[in-house]
Design a protein around this nucleic acid. Structure first.
Lengths: 358, 358
DNA sequence: TTCACCGATCGAATCGATTCGATCAGTGAA
DNA sequence: TTCACTGATCGAATCGATTCGATCGGTGAA
């Protein structure tokens, strides 16, 4: 009936000591036979392994090993929103992919943690058995748990986080990238430029950009891209989207474009390629031609198959970003002091921008 | 030199015993004060908490707690290929999202493990500190590690895995779903039907379906959907795609369609909506009209924004699937015996199927 | 007044490994 | 023959908590 732990009735799971006893050696020797951390004769090792097989011992318990060594082999990845939302963003995926590949190479696993709903029951940042933490685009300022981690001696690496939080930061030139795009639009003659931004907080809310919200935003990426746009178009306003999908962009675009013509911007700076694609669809929905009636730029440089034309955007390599974060983590775990670095972005001219309609 | 553990010179991190000593209570009482697993007077609790603050103690070490309790609070999710590949598939994402939400509610974290390259250095399935494992569409037959897990008493739940492996299986009616689509095509008059399948193994290879490969496939989903198609069109042949993206579908579609007209199928059963979308693009590339020159069906029922028309497909709820797996895990961890279950799929007529060109 | 009982607290055992220092037996050089 | 050295092995301490059973006052009922 209702037993679940023991496999076969009675018989407790064998431990390393049991195996050692059966092989006629001490636990320490048996440990070495398994881990290879020391010299053992081949015959002893064989004997230990044989004893293990006989007892159905499947190797050292990771939990016990972790306690002794102080390492769990797990790196946490904190994402700003829930999985289903974050993972709809190809840039996040690519970043995680780069990160996981790099970490996998050094034998670490990736534990997914969500910034959202940290307050609930779920495995909290403080109580997670992680050796290090990577923050993906989460503002560090708003993270009280960070202090706890630091005190616990757990290294932290941020990706596009707040510089100066005393942690290694892998950055992308979000501000300059957006500035380049804004300059491109200005040079084409645009003056009425609106923004469609990524969500500013962990709440996914569609609505007009408010200065208060910008000031208290936790999403560093969005804030920097706004700053880059305003370097060229001071005080530029717009819409904060409810996510980074085409659908989110479409909804935001509709809000900006479904207005009297005199109120309509001649160009829109969307903070991601998917948002830009959505804006373009919104324009088409309203019978506006891109780029004749409206210019649109994005950010990221991903392939957007669904668009009939190439997007004007700036490209980054999210994969490299993730890999760099992974290397920084590895270095920190080895006692090194990795430096922050900032990846450049490259302008990609596409077919979604042109001079404003006269 | 080269030390890396101590953070600030000297001062070792405080332990629960230190805190207890400082508060003038025994370690056991201090433990209870933190965990709430027992009666403590308010005054004692306050004293312990105060002592903790004074010593900079940030709560029990998760590693030690895990060893004692035998629980790490982590559930592993084994995905069949590397993150960047798996996560490009919206169904995987939705499933993981449902899983993570459900697990989060019960306080567990999600550790990503990749079936691919298990042989390397990376955190191995056997050595990962997990309380349970969820297999996402991985065949269990080919997983020797499963035996180890069973022996270690770690519960396993499969999603679309092999029934009868003695583990709870959360399934989707892949075979019947595909059969329904195939019948739909047959009823429309199609006789020349080709398949575009998901990858059959962990290798991403584009090429003609081979019976050998089907027989030795590790990807259960692909195999069942093939079976469903062959229930109606026995021996149906086709192409095994290199992934589940639109680009993969396009490449596979080209292989099937860029041939003399007499060799061309009149309908294609793609094993995912994204593959179907790719096939449709391939058809357009070659000047073929859908559904006039070619009928195409998919699987999954996700929204494919990039398609100008609605896809004929069967819909599943990946979110529910993941959540069900999460509940099964929770139940297993509580000593229960969750039952396998199979989610139905629903036929969705779209605009991508019609009678064959006469 | 006595007794059973309950809440609070304590001590000690335990979870299952790793690792440091010591021991012991060979081996090659002096 | 002796000595220093090396490779293999062992014992014991340790990692940092949780938990079981026992103890100790204090309360309410008989």
């Amino acid at each position: 009936m209702g037993r679940q732990r023991e496999h076969d009735a009675g018989e407790a799971r064998a431990t390393l000591s049991d195996v050692a006893a059966r092989a006629g050696v001490s636990p320490s020797t048996a440990s070495i036979a398994f881990s290879g951390q020391g010299p053992v004769s081949d015959s002893t090792k064989a004997r230990v392994l044989a004893a293990a097989v006989e007892l159905g011992y499947t190797g050292p318990d990771p939990l016990a090993r972790s306690l002794r060594t102080g390492r769990s082999g797990i790196v946490g990845a904190l994402i700003p929103r829930r999985i289903g939302t974050s993972f709809r963003d190809p840039v996040v995926i690519q970043t995680l992919d780069g990160l996981a590949e790099e970490l996998g190479g050094s034998g670490s696993g990736l534990l997914l943690l969500s910034e959202r709903e940290r307050e609930t029951d779920r495995l909290s940042l403080e109580a997670a058995p992680i050796d290090a933490l990577v923050l993906l685009g989460c503002g560090t300022a708003s993270l009280p748990a960070l202090d706890v981690l630091r005190r616990r001696g757990i290294p932290v690496v941020t990706i596009e986080g707040d510089e100066g939080a005393g942690v290694a930061n892998i950055d992308v030139d979000n501000r300059r990238g957006t500035r380049v795009l804004a300059e491109h639009l200005r040079d084409l003659g645009h003056r009425d430029v609106a923004l469609v931004t990524l969500p500013l907080t962990t709440e996914d809310r569609l609505g007009p950009l408010s200065e208060d919200e910008i000031a208290s935003a936790t999403a560093t990426i969005a804030v920097r891209r706004i700053a880059g746009a305003r370097d060229v178009f001071p005080g530029a306003a717009g819409i904060s989207a409810s996510g980074s999908t085409i659908a989110d962009g479409r909804a935001a675009g509709r809000l900006l474009l479904d207005v009297p013509e005199s109120d309509r911007p001649t160009a829109i700076i969307a903070q991601s390629d998917l948002l830009a694609a959505g804006v373009i669809f919104a324009a088409h929905d309203l019978g506006l031609a891109v780029p004749d009636d409206l210019s649109v730029v994005g950010f990221d440089g991903i392939r957007v198959d669904e668009l009939p034309m190439r997007l004007t955007t700036v490209a980054q390599s999210a994969q490299d970003k993730g890999a760099a974060a992974g290397r920084a983590v590895t270095e920190l775990l080895d006692g090194g002091h990795p430096e922050s670095r900032c990846f450049p972005v490259t302008f990609q001219a596409g077919a979604t921008t042109g001079p404003p309609a006269s």
